[in-house]
Computed example of a mutant assay.
Amino acid sequence: MKKYNWAILGCGWIAEIFASDLKVLDNAVLYAAASRDISKAEKFAEKFGFQKAYGSYLEMLEDDKVDIVYIATPHTLHCEHTLLSLKHKKAVLCEKAFAINEKEVQLMINASKEYNTFLMEAFWTRLVPTFKKVLSIIESKKLGALKTVQSDFMFHSPYNEKSRLYNLDLGGGALLDIGIYPVFTALETLGEPKNIISNAIKSPTGSDEHIDIIFEYENDQKAYLRAGFKNDAPNYSIFHFEKGTVQISREMNCPIIIKTEGGIQELKEDDGPGYGYYFEASHVMECLDQGLIESPILTNEFSLRLIKTLDKIRAKVNVVYPNHD
């Protein structure tokens, strides 16, 4: 088994979750961590067992031993850091949202092709067994055609203009931070909508504190999507078929609940230990073993369709990111 040296670019809380899951994989070497603050990088490296700490992203990328870079900086920096990593011939797994808008995502995809170097959006939920089981149920047609998708992601986070969640300069707002999950769920299961309806509650900074989205499709198919920081919620995704419903939770290792005329059935898929992020890390290494520069499952074309959809939603609620739109 070939082992790969992983590097973390940006040592925030999402990077901590990813690093803890990376430890699960025998072929993943926790090699380097980089932050603009060297002391933060050193603390991160010590906490998770990385071999090296850098106080400069560029210095880390110039390290020839780095194989794969996981980018965990704010949304508005994803494009810049991805382009820099690809230029240094480092495989990239970049956190969602992939970038701020379609233009930036296209630049990233073009760079991946130019430098012949791997690039993938870090959409871990696509690769966990529970979601893959839902896709297999849809494909099997055992419950008939999929008619409606409901998907929520909400939690309470008090308003703070300095918080990343509310700061437009950092790509703040419910849509790109957590609304991307419900939008992804609808696109992956129903496809691209023919029409989008969206309304948002704005924070004082102008960010979307809460957003409601409806996707309308042919054949009367619809998706009802919600995301926000105003209140907590159960955060289920419910798939309505002609002959029943399928419900999944955003929590790991929760049962799939199937309701039909015959009653209620619970299916349990083993989503494994940790937070589920190791599935995407493992998949990246599988792709590199095969000499690929993009995932056949989480394609860059899908990420481009996703960001185009997010751009359309933002335009409808008039959320603008300074210096990016």
Rank of each mutant, 00 (worst) to 15 (best):
Q150F: 14
A19W: 02
K2N: 12
D208E: 09
T148C: 10
G172T: 04
A15N: 06
G228M: 06
Y57T: 11
I178H: 04
S151F: 05
K133N: 06
N235E: 08
N219K: 14
E59T: 08
D177M: 15
E294C: 00
H324C: 08
K259W: 01
T73L: 07
S207V: 05
N323S: 14
P204K: 03
A233W: 07
L107G: 01
L25I: 14
R305F: 06
C254N: 14
F131P: 03
N253Q: 08
Y277G: 08
I214H: 06
H88M: 13
I258C: 09
Y159I: 09
V29M: 08
F279A: 03
M60P: 05
T260W: 06
S303L: 08
D64P: 13
S203T: 14
I257E: 11
A174T: 04
G10F: 03
H210A: 13
N27Q: 12
K2D: 12
T205Q: 01
K312C: 10
D232E: 15
D325G: 09
C287P: 01
L25H: 03
P296Q: 10
S112W: 02
E80C: 04
V69N: 08
Y115G: 00
G12R: 09
V246W: 00
G144V: 03
G191I: 10
E209G: 11
A97C: 13
V69G: 10
N318Y: 08
K316H: 09
T245A: 07
G228S: 01
L107C: 05
N27A: 04
L310K: 02
S20L: 12
G179M: 02
I307G: 01
N160C: 12
L93R: 03
A223I: 03
Y31L: 04
L176G: 11
M252P: 06
P193H: 01
L58N: 14
I8N: 09
K43Y: 10
G228K: 06
I14H: 15
K40A: 10
F184N: 15
E139F: 03
A53C: 02
I109D: 01
D311M: 01
A174F: 04
D63T: 09
G206N: 02
F48R: 07
Q265H: 13
F155Q: 08
Y217G: 05
E280G: 08
G172V: 01
V183R: 00
A223Y: 02
Y4N: 10
V69F: 05
K133H: 08
L86C: 02
K141G: 05
C79H: 01
S56F: 01
R250K: 15
E209A: 15
T309A: 07
V66K: 09
R164D: 12
Y224Q: 06
N167L: 10
M285W: 05
H75I: 15
F155G: 06
L107H: 09
A111W: 03
V69Y: 07
T117K: 04
V134I: 11
I313L: 00
K132R: 15
E161K: 15
K113G: 06
E188W: 11
F279S: 03
G244I: 07
A28T: 11
A7E: 07
G10W: 06
Y277F: 14
R226G: 05
V128Q: 11
N235T: 07
E301M: 07
L9G: 13
C79Q: 09
E114R: 11
E218W: 10
D63P: 01
D289M: 03
I68Y: 05
H156V: 12
I180N: 00
N318R: 12
V128E: 07
F153Q: 14
Y236L: 14
